[in-house]
Nucleic acid binder design. Sequence first.
DNA 1: AGGCGCTTGTGAAGAGGTGCACAAATCGCG
DNA 2: CGCGATTTGTGCACCTCTTCACAAGCGCCT
Lengths: 230, 230
Amino acid sequence: MSRLPEYLRALHALAETGHETVSSEGLASAVGVNSAKLRKDLSHLGSYGTRGVGYDVALLIDQIESVLGLTQCRAVALVGVGNLGHALAGYDGFASRGFRIAALLDADPSRVGERINGLVVRHVDELSRVVAEETISIGVIATPAPAAQAVADELVAVGVTSILNFAPCVLSVPEGVDVRKVDLAIELQILSFHEHRKASLTALPATGGSALTALPGGLATTDTQEAIGT
Amino acid sequence: MSRLPEYLRALHALAETGHETVSSEGLASAVGVNSAKLRKDLSHLGSYGTRGVGYDVALLIDQIESVLGLTQCRAVALVGVGNLGHALAGYDGFASRGFRIAALLDADPSRVGERINGLVVRHVDELSRVVAEETISIGVIATPAPAAQAVADELVAVGVTSILNFAPCVLSVPEGVDVRKVDLAIELQILSFHEHRKASLTALPATGGSALTALPGGLATTDTQEAIGT
DNA sequence: AGGCGCTTGTGAAGAGGTGCACAAATCGCG
DNA sequence: CGCGATTTGTGCACCTCTTCACAAGCGCCT
């Protein structure tokens, strides 16, 4: 599930503060989910906690990392060293969680040769050579939208089967290739919607505003974290 | 729904290429969803297409933007001008979609005064003054994880009710405040999991590898776009 | 050794999203 | 004016995810 990485992060935090075991309740509240859901998730792993005690933190970390395939450090290739790509190249959150940026690529010749974080930007045409040098398991696309599909095609052509796409567009890829997308503007638009909904509700508490804002329970927007603790 | 922004993006692309109307089928394939789902989504808006013809692109854009509250340009305050914050400040995808970065804030005095994209970085203590100057509707947190909760508390204190959190941690906020989070490392970890699963399946097609990889249909990871077209 | 409290693992019920298939409605053409 | 082609809107069945509630198991204390 997509929640496993969140559990993992919380577990690492617990391990650093010296906890040896966690109850499902404790871990669940740290992540912000229902404890039953967490237990069910963990039971799918086949991982065993001990009843009456809880889960062994270190053991659980190993189990989850094993399932996520994080036992080995994965090399990622980053294509597009513009504004966003530059930030990603320098983001230390990757290295600290088992990912190594192995190559920086860009189509712009004026960017080729630039040095970022000890890595030299190479031309995107060298992609196949880069993949030959290192075992690239994930490709990250941080190009403008018009270039994204072509880059994706090239990545697929050289054997990359997992792509993280930051370009605001839909990618067409053959079966067997996984694509996840992150669109920063979409996140803002969803917040804007909530903002708009809240404004309507407070302004027109009786009528409820438009049809949408009056829907029972509002609209479900996945991944929205709402009202945890105080 | 969280799909509305994606529809909106596709619609803008269609409008630019001169289309005046779209069928649900056409728009659905452009976004990569089922046409029935799209029709149901749009029907929730109360927005009417005309049977036998399709949807009026311009009208639909207006409808969706109205629902999302994008009729007015929303001002966002960005806290944390590190690697990621720097990129976000320079990201032009915000302005082009109705968001204006109205303020840059950071706790590091050495960063205060820096000029990014025509905006001067101010100290985070000035937050209340910034909010007084402009109507900030969304706060973006791009600080390191340890500082995120404090920043969130301050944002809430000055009246911000929508927060986009890039820090890898769970935020506690009072009811009525919406938080969305984007964790770049989590996205990579999910891809890593798929990579790992695919590797196990090809290596051990008979046994199916671990218990997890043998689950029927694999594990559901929301937002994963898989095998669209060729 | 036995009982008690605590926690896991899981069956079952509930809720929500998804997709199919079809009726209703609209346009264009003869 | 009427008919057929086309497309929306939606009832229905299915399926997954979520949540509750409880039995089973483990450790500790007496």
